[in-house]
Amino acid sequence: MAKAKTSAVHVEAFADHHVITPPNPLRGVLRAVDDKDRDDPIARAERALAGLSGEFDAWMASECERLRAAHAAILKDGFSKATRDELFRAAHDIKGDATTFGYPTASVAAESLCRIIEHAPQLDQVPAELIANHIKAILAIVREHAQIDKAGVEHELSRRLRAVADEYLAAVNHDRPEHLEAILSPGIAPAE
């Protein structure tokens, strides 16, 4: 397909500056659309998301199983690069997916777990209960979401986990200022 010939660059000279306007090759391919024919990509995306929403619980259950399996591998074989990376990826995926799937507080707890994995100087020195409690909290939030959401339990659980994790990380990173800055910054997961 032959390219349409583009017009030349247009230069307007002023006393103290020049305005250079490059050619716009898209001008020839655009067309006007009636208001009744306009596409609303946000509305289209929301409809697609609503169509998939029936799958969200199954997807979260699958993500939780992956997290549980990663933790079981660590309990069995200890921390290695592979087991650490799998635990991090599982928690990170939950952090990213949970809010979209309707579990925003699971996202907060997963973010806290990711922070532990990222910022603990020696992951094998992290109290096993701290990691286990994060995993148990994520699993409980997903499993009992409909019941505990009403009582606000999951928000308080996520908030306390984050506080304990931050306290631990601040203590073990007292001599690592580059990590302290990241630890003391607010989380990116919506805490509501």
Rank of each mutant, 00 (worst) to 15 (best):
A182W: 05
A170N: 07
Q147K: 15
D175C: 01
I138K: 12
I141E: 00
A128R: 13
E167L: 12
E167C: 05
R159K: 15
P177W: 04
E178V: 03
I138E: 07
A163M: 05
V142Q: 08
L130R: 06
A165Q: 07
R159T: 13
D166N: 13
D166P: 03
A151Q: 11
A163F: 01
I135V: 15
R176N: 09
I141F: 03
L184H: 10
Q125M: 04
A146R: 15
A170Y: 02
N173D: 00
I131C: 08
P127C: 07
L180Y: 03
L161V: 01
R162N: 13
D175M: 09
L184P: 00
R159M: 04
H155A: 06
K136G: 08
R162V: 14
P186I: 10
N173K: 02
E178P: 00
G152E: 02
H155G: 07
D124R: 11
A132Q: 15
L130D: 08
L184Q: 10
A146V: 04
E144Y: 15
P127Y: 08
L184F: 04
A170C: 12
P186W: 00
L139I: 13
N173Y: 00
V164H: 06
A170G: 07
L130F: 09
D124C: 07
N133G: 01
V164A: 01
V153T: 15
D166G: 11
A140S: 14
R162C: 11
S158V: 09
A151G: 10
A128F: 12
H179G: 03
K136Y: 12
A165V: 03
V164K: 08
A182M: 05
S185Q: 05
L161D: 01
A163L: 09
K150T: 02
H179F: 02
R159S: 13
A128L: 13
Q125T: 04
L184G: 05
H145Y: 07
Q125F: 03
I183V: 03
E156P: 01
A163E: 14
L180C: 01
P177Q: 05
P127V: 08
L169Y: 12
N173Q: 02
L130E: 06
L180R: 11
Q125Y: 06
H145P: 12
P177H: 13
S185T: 06
G187Q: 04
H134Y: 07
R143Q: 14
A165K: 06
E181F: 09
A140Y: 11
R162K: 15
V126N: 11
R159A: 09
H145E: 09
A151D: 12
A128Y: 09
H155C: 05
K136C: 02
A170S: 14
V126G: 11
V142A: 14
H174T: 11
D124G: 09
A132M: 11
I148S: 04
E129R: 06
E181V: 15
N173H: 02
